[in-house]
Each structure stands twice: as C-alpha cells, then as structure tokens.
Amino acid sequence: MKTAIYLTLLLFIVAAPMHGQDKYLCKNGHIWFYSETPLETIEAHNNEAASVLTPATGELVFQLLIKSFKFERALMEEHFNENYMESAKFPKSDFKGKLVNLTEIDFSKNGVYQAVVEGKLTIHNKTNTVRQKGTVEVKGNTILVKAKFDVVPGDYDIEIPSAVRDKIAKTVAVNVDMAYQPYKK
C-alpha cells in the first residue's frame, strides 16, 4: 500500500512539471493596426504572426514580418514599407517578454483572465521596454491572447514626413489576437 502511495506521489511530482513546461504555438496570429485622423483612416492586417507561449514560466515571444501587413490601398502599403518601416532593411519585428501576473492565471482552468505583459518590443530595429494589459482565455486545449495598445512611431525612430503628418495619427493602435495550440513534437 505504501509503495502504491509513493508511486502515485512520484507520478504527480514527475508529471506536473512536465505538463507545466509545455509550449503553446500560434502560427497564424492576427496583428493589426489602426490610425485614424479626420483626413485619413489607415488599417493594415498581418495574419502570419508567429508566437510561442510557455504557461509554466509565462514567457511570451512574438515575431512577424513587416512586409506581411496588408493594406486596403497599394500606395499606402508601398509608403509603409519603403518610406516609414524600411522593410527591406529591417524585415522583422519582435517581442520578447513575460506575463508578470502569472499567479493570477490558471492555465488548467477554463476562463478569461486579465493579463499584464512586460518585455522588449523591437520595431524598425529600435527596442523599447513596454508593459501592456490584455486578456488570456483558456478554452480547453486552446489559449487565446488578446491585447490592444498604442505605439508612438517616433519612439521607434519612424519618421513621418511633414507632408503626410496630418494623415497619420500620433499614436497607432495595435491589436493582437492570437490562438495557441499545444506544441506537438
């Protein structure tokens, strides 16, 4: 009987961290931004963002290609890539951070949890430390992460020419919508 209890305990000790260290992947995440001024509304969508979430440590990493942002107008897309983001020179943007309120999120229980993420965001080859709020929804085997935050182009050395300054908002609203699935080896 004692052996059985020890074995059961051992199983829990071994199995728990193994489950906890599992990674969750999102291969086709949706990240889009929105800029609105009385003169122009600009919206662009990227449906190819990749992300890895490690629930045990709260580690959260994103990567996307600037050129994958799709605009309604071809001219806006051209200006975005060539004049502002210089995507030929700086093709990627990434975020490396952590969920800082990890203890408030129960990844083993379905529900919507408020999340605070802190980390380093790199855009246009310039890295800044950011802290943003969002939600983490646990839905069976899927984890959904949603966030909305503002980015100031000037913080990332993105220069907006004076001729179009009135058409581009001073802060650009960035939306993140990711669906993660467990990593299968």
């Binding site: 992947l25 291969k27 190819e48 990749a50 992300s51 990567q63 996307l64 290609l65 050129k67 994958s68």
Partner: peptide, 18 residues
C-alpha cells in the same frame, strides 16, 4: 504569390501571402 520573408521563431518558415 508574394514572398514576404522568413520567420524562424517556431521553425525556419518562409512566408508567402496573396
């Protein structure tokens, strides 16, 4: 389609859109 580059976060993956 349109090749937009390569991401390597999950694995080396070339992205093509449209």
């Amino acid at each position: 389609g349109q090749c937009t580059g390569m991401q390597e976060l999950i694995e080396p993956q070339v992205i093509m859109i449209r």
